[in-house]
């Protein structure tokens, strides 16, 4: 079956095979670099996610691709669609913010400095009011899926509110259906291996 391919490889020599392997590795490496670079820019551990459930229908369906950002120190608003992952939760969840609450926590010294420095540009941000500069305001969130009847407290694994550190990012952009490939690959693992195998083989055998 692979006689033809093996003959090709023998004819082209080991040097060519190594070169193809190197090409293959550089493709994978650049993919990883783009992913991690995006994560750095958007400040989110996973800047692109695929919708896995129907709880946000009719806004998002299974397989839709979402682009997230998570700028530091920018408060969330009601109506924002967040992706969050609570400790103990299996998969990240995409749901809309229903309530935002400010709570006053005693700030650490570094936060105090940051607050004093940031006091000048408080005016344009303005969504979280800081009356005392030595206290830090933290945001608590409550979310709900558009297609669900009740809010998400039961999904928080015992937590009463969602905190900022649980949020992976806020949905900024939307591309329909493209992510369905990954869902198909998850549902049928053989498809994934077949696809990877074929791609690898083609990359090795292909002549430029």
């Amino acid at each position: 079956m692979f006689a033809e391919e093996l003959k090709t490889i023998r004819r082209l020599g080991i040097r060519h095979v190594l070169l193809q392997l190197l090409n293959f590795a550089s493709v994978i490496a650049s993919g990883l670099m783009i992913w991690k670079g995006l994560g750095l820019i958007t400040n989110s551990e996973s800047p692109i996610v695929v919708v896995l459930s129907g709880s946000m229908e009719p806004a998002f369906y299974r397989g839709d691709l979402l682009f997230l950002t998570n700028p530091a120190n920018v408060p969330y608003h009601t109506g924002d669609i967040t992706v969050y992952k609570v400790p103990g939760g299996q998969i990240p969840i995409v749901h809309r913010v229903l309530e935002t609450r400010g709570v006053v926590r005693r700030a650490s010294s570094s936060a105090k400095k940051a607050a004093a420095k940031g006091l000048a540009d408080e005016g344009k941000e303005g969504a979280v009011l800081r009356t005392q500069p030595e206290a830090e305001v933290e945001q608590l969130l409550l979310t709900k899926g558009d297609n669900n009847h009740i809010d998400d407290i039961d999904l928080y694994e015992g937590l009463e509110w969602l905190e900022r550190r649980h949020v992976v990012g806020k949905v900024r952009g939307f591309l329909p259906y493209i992510g369905y490939v990954t869902i198909a690959m998850n549902d049928f693992p053989k498809l994934k291996y077949a696809l990877l195998g074929i791609l690898g083989l083609v990359a090795l055998v292909q002549r430029e």
């Binding site: 009601t78 309530e99 609450r101 400010g102 709570v103 006053v104 969504a127 009011l129």
Partner: peptide, 8 residues
């Protein structure tokens, strides 16, 4: 306490 609350 001087903090903002938004409730849908």
């Amino acid at each position: 306490k001087g903090v903002r609350n938004d409730v849908v």
